[in-house]
């Protein structure tokens, strides 16, 4: 136990301002204000993989690590769409996931934000939209409020995208 505590103390606080960042820090503060005002201080996010290669999932995970620490802006990931204010969807929507994506969206309390994360979710990326196994990009299946490009988008891009969609909507 002592070793564990020592490690925690030696590691220290690694959370950092986001890269390119004065604007983001500012946006973060504004966003935090929006989240406090419109979401009672916490924005609940649900992530759904609609057919991604798992690259976007790794980067969404990374938004929670100690460097980015998404939770400091009042955002947290929840286990059910029924608890969520925002849906992050990754991947091109496969034919085999289309129904599950629609059901997930339908299970969310309205109003709900949908963010397409990554090139595949935004426009099918390296996959063809008219391919037999692909149902389409996310906005072909459910309404999308914002897209975050990148293959995969980096954690800072994901956080920036979430902040911007909230700031824009709440404004």
């Amino acid at each position: 136990m002592l070793k564990l505590l020592k490690q925690i103390i030696m590691t220290g606080d690694k959370s950092e301002p986001l890269p390119d960042s004065d604007a983001i820090e500012l946006l973060g503060e504004q966003l935090h204000a929006h989240i406090r005002k419109h979401f009672a201080g916490s924005l609940a996010i649900r992530a759904v993989d609609a057919g991604s290669c798992n690259g976007c999932e790794l980067e969404i995970h990374a938004t929670g690590n100690c460097y980015y620490d998404l939770e400091r802006f009042g955002c947290h990931f929840v286990a059910s769409p029924r608890h969520a204010d925002m849906l992050l969807v990754t991947g091109p929507v496969t034919r085999n996931m289309a129904t599950a994506v629609k059901m997930t969206f339908a299970a969310m309390p309205q109003p709900a934000f949908v963010v397409a994360v990554g090139d595949c979710a935004s426009g099918c990326g390296v996959f063809e939209p008219d391919h037999y196994a692909i149902a389409g990009a996310v906005n072909d299946i459910i309404p999308v409020h914002a897209s975050i490009r990148g293959c995969p988008p980096e954690p800072a891009d994901i956080i920036r995208g979430i902040l911007q969609v909230i700031a824009r909507r709440a404004a």
């Binding site: 993989d49 057919g51 991604s52 991947g91 091109p92 496969t94 034919r95 085999n96 996931m97 599950a100 390296v126 996959f127 063809e128 391919h131 037999y132 196994a133 692909i134």
Partner: peptide, 22 residues
């Protein structure tokens, strides 16, 4: 099978350079 994207089919007709991106 939920994330079946038809990669085996999609690879057909691609050059090696395009295929490696997939």
């Amino acid at each position: 099978g939920y994330v079946h994207k038809g990669i085996e089919k999609a690879m057909c007709g691609k050059t090696a350079a395009a295929g490696i991106r997939l």
